[in-house]
Each structure stands twice: as C-alpha cells, then as structure tokens.
Nucleic acid binder design. Structure first.
Lengths: 188, 188
DNA sequence: TCAGACGATGGCAGCTGCTGTCATCAAGTA
DNA sequence: TACTTGATGACAGCAGCTGCCATCGTCTGA
C-alpha cells in the first residue's frame, strides 16, 4: 500500500474539488491540493495526468457502462433506442450521486478549461458508442450520427437535471429529451 | 501600423500552422513560432490568448455568420430548417478554403489539446444558435436541442468532407447528414 | 515643422503546470 | 535477514503565460 495513509488518490480528488469550490480552479495550485491531501505535487501528477483530470478520471467507468449496455441490447433494437437505453442506465447511475454531480458541475461551469475537458470526455463517449454500433453492423455515417444525437440528448437532459431545484428523474429527462429531438427533426 | 513588417498576426498564424505540421503541436514552442514570424514570444501572446487559439481565432466570424443567417430566416421556417440553412451557408464558406481546412484539421486531429479547443468552439456555436432561436420565440429545451442537433449534423458532415478524397460538396453533405438524422430518429 | 499622444513591439522577471531522475521508505517475499 | 516491489519525496529544469516598463514608429494638432 501507500507509504503512510491509504487512499492517496481519493484524498487528492476530495481536496481538489474542495479547493476548486472555495477559490476557483485557476486560483488553486496543484501544490495546495497536494498539501491538503498530505502529499506532494509530484505525487499528484503520478495519479492524474493534469490539473483538470482529477475531476474526470471516473469517465472511463461511465464509458464502459455505456458500451456494454449498448452491446447487450437485442439485435432487434434500433440504434437510437440502444443508445437511449444505455444513456438511461448511465443516468440512473449519476442519479445516485446527485449532490456530488451538482458540486462538480458548478465547478466545471465556472471554468472554460474544465468545460473543454468535459466536452472531450463527452466526445469520447460518443466515439465509443459509434464504435460499438459499428460492431453491431450499423454503417457510417449512421453510427456516428446516432451516437452524436445521443450525446446531444444527454447534454440537454443533464443540464436540466443539474439546474432544476425540484429533483426530477434523470432517466426520465433523457427520455423526454429524445422525444423532443424526434419532434424537432420530424418532417411536417 | 506595426513597427516593421505589417500583418504580424497573419505571419504568426502562418508560422504556427507550418510548425505544427512539421514537428507537431507539442514539439513546437511559442518562441519558435514567433521567431519564424520575425516577432517575439511576448508579442505572440498579445495576439492570441494561448498557443492553441492561433488556429481558432476566426471562429468568431463563423459564429456571427451562423447567428445572422438564422436571424434572417423567415418566421415561418421551422427551427431545425433555420439552423440547417445557416450551417449550409457556413459550409459554403469553408468550401472556399478547402486546402487550408484540411491542413488545419489534420493538425487538430493529431493533438488532443487542439481537439478540446475545437470542441469548445463548436459548443460555442451551438450556444449562440440556441440563443438566437430563443430570440425567435423558440422555448427551451427545444432551442438547445435544435442547436445541438445542428452541431451534430455539422460535425459528421464536416468529417466526411475532410476525409474524402473525391471532393464532395459540403453544403450537400450537410443536407444529407440532416436527412440521415431524421431517419435515425424517426419512429417506426 | 515639431511636440506629444498613441499603438505595437521588445525585454525581462516571475509564477505555475508538468516532467525526468534519483533517493527513500514501507511492506511483502524468499 | 537480504532482496524486491510499489508508492512517495526531493530536486532540477523546461515551457506556457503574465505583468511591467522601455522603446520605437506613426499620427495629430498647434
């Protein structure tokens, strides 16, 4: 295990989120985060590739969840429905950590650099879903477009979920958002 | 005008793109860009907020073009059609600089930091379009969803346009991409 | 024509993010 | 008990980026 206290990575995460909240992302130095976690700056960069990544390192798990859920859907499911089902599963997971998600999102919204990082994580989720759709026999550009549409649906639904004072259900919001997309794109 | 040669900003842009192509983004220092442009590092940062922005500073013009085009559409136009029309106009503009667009995109694709910056520029275009839709009386979440769908359509169409050896028409690819999105989201 | 305003640039110091390298320490293993 | 292994500390150093002030060319008004 570690040299002194266990779970150095977790302490770094917690310290970073706290300090980003208290002083803002730019006004926080990595040395300060490390100090609050009882570690050194050098160790921070062994756990996280950069100062932003500390807020996003769990994105990999979310991506695996999305991919495996899409992969498990019956072949009869339309691509957009497979994607929507996966997003609802992921939404249910996020739902369990609503307070954490809100805090984190407030920090991200307050800083453009963090917003950039969030966007590339979402884009990565999209690419992964397009890839699994292709493995299911969906051709391009249908696969990419379906995945991108899914990401768009998720972004809007997640935004509503975070903003609202009354806590509506995230999977439900995702369904409603997809319905709205269908209306928006429907030919009249 | 400038102190010696005119158009320092343009020289910096050109030098940066060249060096990013030759050695890659990370392997290029700002001092090297400035030197090739006959200027200093300090002056580079007066023209561009950071090392990435030199490839994206013209995004503002594209955004204005999109916004004004949406704003000029007749009230009878459906939101998605207004957005699509604006994207086609923007696509026609990009079409005129195909070689430059390709070079630039190759550089961006080769570096995650540049990809991040591109994504936030696209997100900014989306926000601007959502805003102009709201001014046209479109409510949320319809406005955001329409704009996000437009960005998704554009991303896929632009990707095809850049990849293909035979140069198909970008506005045409955008129309086809929107048609594909309609098919993908259509209820069966 | 000349003095001063103004805008763009150079030069320099300094902070911070991030990396490479080597030493150190705790715990497990033969 | 000696050796290995994995996480950490310590330190040097580069590059991105900023603040500050000096400098230079051009424009403007008397």
């Amino acid at each position: 295990m570690g040299r002194w206290e266990p779970n150095g990575r977790g302490r770094l995460e917690r310290a970073a989120l706290e300090l980003y909240q208290e002083r803002g992302f730019e006004q926080t130095t990595v040395a300060e985060i490390a100090k609050r976690a009882g570690l050194t700056e050098r160790t921070f960069f062994r756990h996280f590739a950069d100062k932003r990544e500390v807020l996003f390192w769990d994105a990999g798990a979310l991506q695996e969840l999305l991919v495996s859920t899409v992969a498990r859907m019956p072949d009869s499911a339309a691509p957009i429905d497979a994607v929507a089902a996966a997003l609802e599963v992921a939404g249910a997971l996020l739902q369990e950590r609503r307070e954490y998600s809100r805090k984190r999102q407030a920090v991200i919204a307050a800083n453009p650099e963090l917003h950039e990082r969030e966007l590339i994580k979402l884009a990565s989720l999209g690419s992964a879903m397009a890839e699994v759709l292709r493995r299911r026999g969906v051709r391009e550009p249908t696969a990419s477009l379906t995945a991108e549409a899914g990401i768009a649906v998720f972004k809007v639904a997640f935004g509503s979920w975070v903003d609202e004072t009354t806590s509506r259900d995230l999977p439900q919001l995702i369904r409603e958002s997809l319905d709205e997309l269908r209306s928006v794109t429907a030919r009249r």
